[in-house]
């Protein structure tokens, strides 16, 4: 009995250890830096603690970064634009991913794994290379434009690259598996007898879908949307490579604060606010779900 209690404690400790080492500890550093001032030193920010005679005597918490962040229209616009792009891209991913997941879940069992491998296959190539490949496809002299030109569908190249369209395309393409997999996991568990019962009770297929399948797959929809929305909002590579200079996303702002301006405190403050913006709704959802019976 003592042995099993020990085992259980170790098993429970592992995720906490992981979260502590790779999330909470780094986040504490970031939080600390966000309260300091940028400085021409190594590292490039002022010290958080005030020392006197080798002992910490006080904190020099500097809220200027957060004040600037909330007052500067650029940052606020970047946040809003990121959330908008993330939300729209998530919605498109859901519209594409749901029928895919549904079809896989309804396929013959021996074919499901083949389809799932096909969904995950792109992961076998580097993410960066795949986004570069999209640049090659979308550019004015790229594959899509050349094909359309030579077919005579268009007279001059379409502007595809460096547009919001390209950003949405990139996000939907890159994150589709994160939508399909949790939805599939949910839909696959759905008892076919429930749909048969709905039909038997007089429900036409679409009403059975709306009344039974859709509400029962809600946890999958929620999980898929979070898995797509959260990284999409903070996405840097896709807007940088496909969105061009006119796409404003917080990931790009953060990058330039950190690398171009070498303003680590500002970049840290941006990160903290982004995290709070993303985590708060999830915590709310979680709390609501625990309330529900």
């Amino acid at each position: 009995m003592i042995g099993t209690a020990w085992h259980r404690r170790i098993v429970l400790a592992l995720p906490w250890l992981w979260t502590g080492l790779f999330f909470l500890l780094p986040f504490a550093f970031v939080l600390k830096i966000s309260f300091s001032e940028a400085a021409l030193s190594v590292p490039p920010y002022s010290d958080f603690f005030a020392y006197a005679g080798g002992a910490i005597v006080g904190l020099k918490a500097n809220l200027a970064n957060y004040q600037l962040l909330l007052s500067d229209a650029l940052y606020v616009k970047a946040y809003l634009s990121s959330v908008k792009i993330g939300a729209i891209a998530t919605f498109i991913t859901l519209l594409l991913g749901y029928p895919m997941a549904y079809a896989i879940a309804r396929a013959a069992p021996q074919r499901r794994n083949v389809f799932l491998v096909l969904v995950m296959l792109p992961f076998w190539t580097s993410f960066l290379i795949r986004i570069y490949a999209w640049m090659g496809l979308l550019r004015p002299t790229g594959l899509i434009n050349s094909a359309l030109l030579s077919l005579g569908v268009i007279d001059e190249p379409l502007l595809l690259l460096n547009t919001p369209f390209a950003v949405y395309l990139g996000i939907v393409y890159a994150y589709l598996p994160f939508m399909v997999l949790p939805l599939y996991a949910r839909l696959e568990k759905l008892d076919p007898a429930l749909l048969e019962a709905a039909a038997d009770l007089g429900a036409k297929p679409w009403r059975a879908f709306l009344g039974v399948t859709l509400p029962l797959s809600r946890p999958g929809i929620l999980a898929g949307c979070l898995l797509v929305f959260i990284p999409a909002v903070g996405e840097f590579v896709i807007p940088e490579l496909l969105g061009g200079p006119n796409t404003l996303m917080i990931g790009k702002v953060l990058w330039s604060e950190f690398f171009s301006n070498r303003d680590w405190p500002m970049a840290s403050a941006l990160t903290v606010v982004l995290l709070v913006l993303l985590v708060a709704p999830i915590m709310l959802l979680q709390a609501r779900r625990e309330d529900a019976p």
Binding site: D191, A193, L194, E196, A197, A198, A199, D200, L201, G202, A203, K204, G211, V212, P215, L216
Partner: peptide
């Protein structure tokens, strides 16, 4: 099945787990 004047009670009962008892009955 939805156009037939017969109803079936499934072996697993196939009750809709996300609906209350009354909603289950009201569905049909």
């Amino acid at each position: 099945p939805y156009a037939r004047p017969v109803n079936m009670m499934f072996q697993s009962y196939a009750l809709f787990p996300h609906m209350t008892v009354a909603d289950n009955v009201a569905f049909g």
